[in-house]
Structure formats: structure tokens, C-alpha cells
């Protein structure tokens, strides 16, 4: 691909590019979400072991995937911003954090909903759920640190350090939680573990994963646009922008 990426690395051109892309991603997210939920809740066959309750995985699993993936993406952009001093990358990291935290929260919440009919308890100290909870703490730490710092450049850099430290630690944390779990012979929740997943189940899951992707991209672009406006409010191009929109 011979796109000149540097053209989009300036906050101003990114602002307009993002503005044009948001509607497409939003529409895609809504359509995929409706289709995915329909397949998940009405088309996919009832699980012979878990009954109807298993259908929560169509939300739980994509949310959990996305929450982990977004942390890595966030750390990546924050690291790029720290290393090359590119403001837009740092703004992207800041924009990603709330969406990532929301997905960890959804994954935890739906995990509890699923656990109740399965085991009769809302919370199980299972390795995956526990790791997800710790991931949630890591997101909260990143966001609180950035919120506590007034100077946006310092916030960007400090956030980058803690995101990178976090991303190095995530495998260690995950591994140690798993060790801890096997040692204590706790319950093992494997929500998505069906030996033969019906095609409709698989399709629903993939469509929901795609919907979650589209939603994340749309939300992150929207938030990035807001951050850009806030940070660049004294520049000439934002001043012009106001003139046009009024």
C-alpha cells in the first residue's frame, strides 16, 4: 500500500479523516450487532448441557477478546507516542482506554450472569475471570493516572510508562493466576468450550466479534476527535472549524 501515512499523522487531517470514517463503522457495528444477536439468541441451537443460558457467550467472549486486545493496542500506541513523541499516538491510547475498560466490565458482568445459572453463584475465582478482573484494575490505573495529571504531555508519557509496564506484566499475571488456580483446584469456567460448536454458533460468535471491532473503532475515533479538539483548541484550524459549523 502506498498511502502516505504521515499525512494522517497530524491531528488536523486525522480529525477530518476520522470524521468521514465514523459513520461507516457505526453503521457496520449496528448492523452486525443486530445480526449477531439475532443468530446468537434465536438461530443458534440450544446447548444440550447448558440450556439457554449459554447464549450469554455471544456477548461475553467477544467482549473478553476485545478487552485484552485493546490493552495491547493501547500500550502499543502509548509506546509509539513515548518513543517518537507523536502526539496523535498518545491521544489514541487515551481514547482506547475507556472502551477497553468497558469491555472488561462487560466480560465480568456477563461472566457473573452466566455463572449464576451454571453454578448458582455469581462469582467464581476462575483463572480467566480473575485475570479479567486484574485487567480491569490495570485499565482503571491507567485512566486514573492520566486524569490526575494536569499537563497533557506529562499525562501522555506517564500513561505510556504504566501501560508498557502493564503489558509486560499481563503474561506474568495471567500465568501466575493460572498456577494459583490449578494449585487451589478452583472451579474452571470455560464458557466457550464446546467440543462441537454448531455452525450457527460459530457464525454468531464471529459476527459478534466483528461487531465489537466495528463498535470499538467507531467509539475510539469519536473519542480521539474530542481529545484532538480539546488539545488543539487554540490552533488556527480549530478556530476556523467553529466558523464553518456555526
Amino acid at each position: 500500500m502506498s498511502i502516505n501515512w504521515y499525512k494522517y499523522a497530524s491531528p488536523a487531517s486525522f480529525y477530518f479523516l476520522a470524521g468521514r470514517m465514523i459513520p461507516y463503522f457505526s453503521i457496520a457495528a449496528i448492523v452486525l450487532l443486530i445480526v449477531g444477536l439475532y443468530i446468537g439468541f434465536f438461530v443458534a441451537p440450544t446447548d444440550f448441557q447448558q440450556g439457554e443460558a449459554y447464549r450469554i457467550i455471544f456477548i461475553h467472549v467477544p467482549a473478553a477478546w476485545m478487552s485484552m486486545f485493546l490493552y495491547v493496542v493501547m500500550a502499543f500506541w502509548a509506546g509509539i507516542g513515548l518513543a517518537f513523541n507523536t502526539r496523535l499516538s498518545s491521544m489514541m491510547a487515551t481514547a482506547i482506554a475507556p472502551t477497553g475498560a468497558m469491555f472488561t466490565f462487560i466480560a465480568l458482568w456477563t461472566g457473573a450472569w452466566w455463572g449464576k445459572p451454571m453454578w448458582g453463584t455469581w462469582w467464581v475465582w476462575d483463572a480467566r475471570l480473575t485475570s479479567e478482573l486484574i485487567l480491569f484494575f490495570l485499565y482503571i490505573g491507567f485512566m486514573s493516572l492520566q486524569a490526575a495529571i494536569d499537563d497533557p504531555r506529562r499525562a501522555d508519557k506517564a500513561g505510556a510508562i504504566i501501560a508498557l509496564v502493564g503489558v509486560v506484566n499481563i503474561p506474568i499475571i495471567y500465568f501466575s493466576v493460572q498456577w494459583w488456580n490449578t494449585l487451589h483446584q478452583g472451579a474452571s469456567v470455560s464458557i466457550a468450550q464446546s467440543p462441537k460448536m454448531a455452525t450457527a454458533m460459530l457464525a454468531g460468535m464471529l459476527i459478534m466479534a466483528l461487531a465489537v471491532w466495528m463498535y470499538s473503532i467507531a467509539m475510539i475515533l469519536m473519542r480521539a476527535r474530542t481529545i484532538i479538539l480539546e488539545r488543539e483548541r487554540h490552533t488556527a484550524w480549530v478556530a476556523e472549524l467553529k466558523g464553518i459549523t456555526r
Partner: peptide, 9 residues
């Protein structure tokens, strides 16, 4: 908030 999650292992 920053440090305790990293202490878990």
C-alpha cells in the same frame, strides 16, 4: 491503584 495489580504475581 497503579502498583497493587502489579504486585499480584
Amino acid at each position: 491503584l497503579l502498583v497493587l495489580p502489579l504486585y499480584i504475581p
